[in-house]
Amino acid sequence: MLDRLNAQLERLRRHPFYAGRLPSHVMSTEEFAARTPLMSRADLVAEMGRPGYGAFAPHVPPVRVHLTPMGAALVPILNSAADLRAIEAACGQHLDACGIGPGDVCMVTFGYHLFVAGLFYQSQMEARGVACIPHGPGETERAADIARRCGVTVLAGNPSHALKLIEAGCPVPRVFFAGGEAFTGNQALYQRVHDAMPGTLLIDSFSLSECLPVARTFPGGTGVHVFEELLYAEVIDPDSGQPVAHGERGELVLTHLTKELQPLVRYRTGDLTVLRHTEPVFGRTVSLPRVVFGRADSMLKIKGVKIYPSELRAVLLGVEGLSGAYRLVVSRNAHGGDRLSLQVEGTPAPAAIDAIAMRFKQQTLISADAIEAVVKLEGTHLVTDQRSTA
């Protein structure tokens, strides 16, 4: 990895955005983290909003331009021919690992238009000799009929929609690529798909339009493994910006290793994750065992522990009787310490409350003092912090 990082640093020495910002060479990944500044999404949005894309003006012609929403803007994501070939090569190795190749038929039910997922899956399949049906989302009955008539063996799409396709008579695929919603992180949804597709190889994935692809399930691996030929992954403390120990949760930071257009270096994704090193799995050794499970933009400290309110969505996924809405209420107890109550919207069974309490502690490393189910939560705020008024 160090050789790849140094090769990228050398390539970017004279890049208009990075000139003067990056070290020319590092002796370790620790030195890379210490000497290389972090880059935010706001930095990217600002530069791409300048005439001709500012310092990211393409030095070779882009052959594909996707647009991705970032705040109020639709930001162009540029790819050169070499960028697309690198993506196809990396994804091709994954398809090989999954036993997908000529003779397979893939139906893509992700969206197309300006966005990335549909064409992303279509192009990698076609590059490996797989017949591809670019159906897009919706029209379930028609899609299921086409899948039957065309002998679909690989399905790529949203898990909830995939369940509807199976119910409508779509043949059970040999491999299913999930995306668009939490999958392995939502055990109830994952189990429903597993039950509906017996014997199917189920693939979870994580990608960003500006960093594509990031990681996927590899057969025999845990969670998703990072495409290390394309990206270097780190996890930092969102508050201090310093790297966390391996296995601790924090914000995912990504560095492109080969990208020709719009290369990103130590790019803060805003996504919370955990990173672990593993034995090689089809040559990959960096795993995100829980994929991503929240956002790093509203941290607060409770009982001495950093809590990210958005990560609690993962705690409630798949719990029957809940709407998914929740609120943290932080106050002072009689001794002046923090008291933490989790309010959840819905009518869960008592056993579900116990399961939520266990999941909460596993996720945050602290216990909730109370978990309260309410029929309707008023307002949209995730946190009520009463400590300053106590």
Rank of each mutant, 00 (worst) to 15 (best):
Met1Ile: 14
Leu2Asp: 04
Asn6Cys: 05
Ala7Arg: 15
Leu9Ala: 06
Arg13Trp: 09
Leu22Ile: 12
Ala33Gln: 13
Ala34Ser: 14
Thr36Leu: 08
Leu38Gly: 08
Asp43His: 11
Leu44Met: 08
Glu47Cys: 12
Met48Phe: 05
Met48Thr: 13
Phe56Asn: 01
Val60Ile: 14
His66Thr: 15
Ala73Gly: 00
Leu74Ala: 10
Pro76Glu: 07
Leu78Thr: 07
Asn79Lys: 08
Leu84Cys: 09
Cys91Tyr: 06
Gly99His: 03
Gly99Phe: 04
Ile100Trp: 01
Gly103His: 04
Val105Arg: 03
Val105His: 02
Val108Cys: 06
Thr109Glu: 00
Tyr112Ala: 12
Gly118Arg: 02
Ser123Met: 15
Gln124Cys: 11
Ala131Phe: 13
Ala131Glu: 07
Cys132Ala: 12
Pro134Glu: 06
Pro134His: 04
Pro137Glu: 08
Gly138Ser: 05
Glu139Arg: 15
Glu139Gly: 06
Val152Tyr: 05
Gly157Pro: 06
Asn158Gln: 09
Pro171Ser: 05
Pro173Cys: 12
Gly179Arg: 01
Gly180Tyr: 09
Asn186Trp: 06
Ala188Gly: 00
Val193His: 00
Thr200Ile: 14
Leu201Val: 15
Leu202Gly: 02
Ser209Tyr: 03
Ala215Cys: 09
Ala215Val: 12
Thr217Lys: 07
Pro219Ser: 10
Val224Arg: 01
His225Leu: 14
Val226Ser: 02
Glu229Lys: 02
Leu231Gln: 01
Leu231Ala: 06
Asp239Pro: 00
Gly241Asn: 08
Gln242Cys: 11
Pro243Ser: 07
Ala245Tyr: 00
Glu248Ser: 13
Arg249Cys: 11
Arg249Trp: 06
Leu252Gly: 00
Leu252Phe: 03
His256Phe: 08
His256Gly: 02
Lys259Phe: 05
Leu264Trp: 03
Val265His: 04
Arg268His: 05
Thr269Gln: 02
Thr269Ile: 13
Leu272Asn: 01
Thr273Val: 11
Val274Lys: 00
Arg276Leu: 12
Phe282Ala: 14
Phe282Val: 14
Gly283Tyr: 03
Arg284Ile: 12
Leu288Gln: 05
Ala296Thr: 11
Ala296His: 00
Asp297Lys: 00
Ser298Ala: 15
Ile302Leu: 10
Gly304Ser: 04
Val305Thr: 14
Ser310Glu: 06
Ser310Arg: 08
Gly318Glu: 03
Ala325Lys: 15
Ala325Tyr: 02
Val330Glu: 01
Asn333Arg: 12
Asp338Phe: 11
Arg339Met: 09
Arg339Asn: 00
Leu340Glu: 01
Glu345Pro: 10
Gly346Ile: 15
Ala352Val: 01
Ile356Cys: 10
Arg359His: 04
Arg359Ala: 14
Arg359Cys: 08
Ala368Phe: 09
Ala373Lys: 05
Ala373Arg: 07
Val374Glu: 10
Val374Ile: 15
Leu377Ala: 12
His381Ile: 11
Gln386Leu: 15
Gln386Ile: 11
Thr389Pro: 10
